[in-house]
Amino acid sequence: MLLSNLEVVPHKKIVRHLGLVQGSTVRAKHAGRDIMAGLKNLVGGELKGYTELLQDAREEATGRMVEQANAIGANAVLNIRYATSSVASGASELFAYGTAVELED
């Protein structure tokens, strides 16, 4: 599966467009991490626990999108966009969407 946020693939031709595919996940951080992050907030800087959490979540959203694309017989997803929104305090939604296409071999 080729993933790209370009509208075209520079080295391959698109044979068929299969429409929009999307994947999303809502994650909350667990209390232990939250407390550590609270302490870290005092001195500022990177909150590693959150970085990891969001990265995992993003990967999962991408994975779900890829699953959907696989199901409709695509071999690439183009023009991928990511969006983040906080649905409740302490939880955030990660959303990935793109266009599933079939590329020539």
Binding site: L2, L3, S4, N5, L6, V9, P10, H11, A37, K40, N41, L42, V43, G44, G45, E46, L47, Y50, T51, L54, Q55, R58, I80, Y82
Partner: peptide
């Protein structure tokens, strides 16, 4: 001439100090 393309991401969470 492009021979390969791949999606790459990088992310970080940073906070401000007290």
């Amino acid at each position: 001439t492009v021979t390969d393309s791949r999606l790459v991401t990088g992310s970080v969470v940073v906070s401000i100090d007290y």
